[in-house]
């Protein structure tokens, strides 16, 4: 019988101690943030989706379209589209498609990129009900007002034109010369 009362007393005591702690919380400041009205400040290292970095010198991205990010991505969510333009060294990026639905934010692409052309953004307000909203063209995101045309190097343009002329003059070697020229341009990039 005494054990029974003892249990009740210890039980009540433990409840009283618990309630004491709980009651204290009435007087502390709540830590809840009212999300749409207030938002958390993201740390600079927060990994949002990747973005092309704007080079302050040139005012555009640094991507050379080497495709290393595409190759290293575990889920294959990057597609780099580029083309060769007359008078421009290397390849010109025409679209950088990121399928964010499959991105795992691992950072392989950022690490693989030699010219440091991509980085993680701080964007996290990405809720949407449509899947297509998560397929980003990062180039468009960087230049929403329109992608600037790459600068044409007149010397290179002249050289390339001359090469073409030379190739035209020798129709027999035409194919071979053109291929050679192209692979050289690729090597440079």
């Amino acid at each position: 019988m005494s054990g029974y009362f003892k249990e009740i007393i210890t039980g009540l005591k433990s409840l009283a101690i618990g309630l004491q702690i709980t009651n204290k919380e009435f007087f502390t400041k709540p830590i809840t943030l009212q999300y749409p009205h207030e938002s958390v400040k993201m740390t600079p290292r927060y990994r949002g989706h990747i973005e092309l970095v704007k080079d302050p010198q040139t005012g555009t991205h640094r991507c050379i379209a080497c495709g290393m990010c595409e190759k290293g991505c575990p889920t294959g969510c990057i597609t780099v589209q580029a083309e060769k333009r007359e008078g421009v060294k290397g390849k010109v990026l025409t679209a950088y498609i990121l399928n964010f639905t499959t991105c795992s934010l691992c950072g392989q692409c950022v690490e693989n990129c030699k010219p440091e052309a991509i980085n993680f953004s701080n964007e996290y307000n990405l809720a949407s009900t449509r899947r297509e909203d998560y397929i980003f063209n990062l180039l468009q995101k960087l230049h929403p007002e329109g992608v600037p045309e790459p600068e044409i190097d007149p010397e290179l343009l002249k050289k390339e034109r001359e090469k073409k002329e030379a190739a035209k003059k020798e129709p027999a070697k035409k194919a071979a010369a053109k291929e050679g020229g192209e692979s050289k341009a690729e090597e440079k990039s």
């Binding site: 740390t43 290292r45 927060y46 990994r47 795992s104 934010l105 950072g107 993680f120």
Partner: peptide, 28 residues
């Protein structure tokens, strides 16, 4: 837990599914 997640987020960039270590060291 929130405090820890904030701390870890500030170095690893993620809050739950960390991909922070690399062969030979850590990401940053």
């Amino acid at each position: 837990r929130e405090q820890i997640l904030d701390l870890l987020e500030s170095v690893t960039g993620s809050r739950l599914t960390y991909c922070y270590f690399r062969f030979g060291g850590v990401y940053n």
